[in-house]
Amino acid sequence: MLATEEDILAQAESWKRAGKGVAIATVVETWGSAPRPTGSHLVIDEDGLFLGSVSGGCVEGDVVTEAQDVIADGKPRTLEYGVADETAWRVGLSCGGRIRVYVERID
């Protein structure tokens, strides 16, 4: 079965209770054709395990990496992805849309 939003947030809680550093990434803004709607979650633990999605798989790798910094220093970050982005060759959305992702640590 596919993970639902319910499984995703429950997983974040259980990782945290197990003593892991955990971050939650949320799609807070989309422009154009974005693969996942605003409010979609990706949860990441300190070992880089993750559940959920914020795109069709295009930028998750980068969000997971950024999440490690958020878990380390506790400062929330807002990340933006899109074809117009200078990092487009590395990570970008093939669909042509743009998304903004808010990443925060669970304390």
């Binding site: 319910e6 429950a10 974040a12 945290k16 669970i106 304390d107």
Partner: peptide
């Protein structure tokens, strides 16, 4: 996010 907020959300 505070863990207690996440807990309430899940509850």
């Amino acid at each position: 996010m505070k863990l207690d907020i996440l807990k309430s959300l899940n509850e």
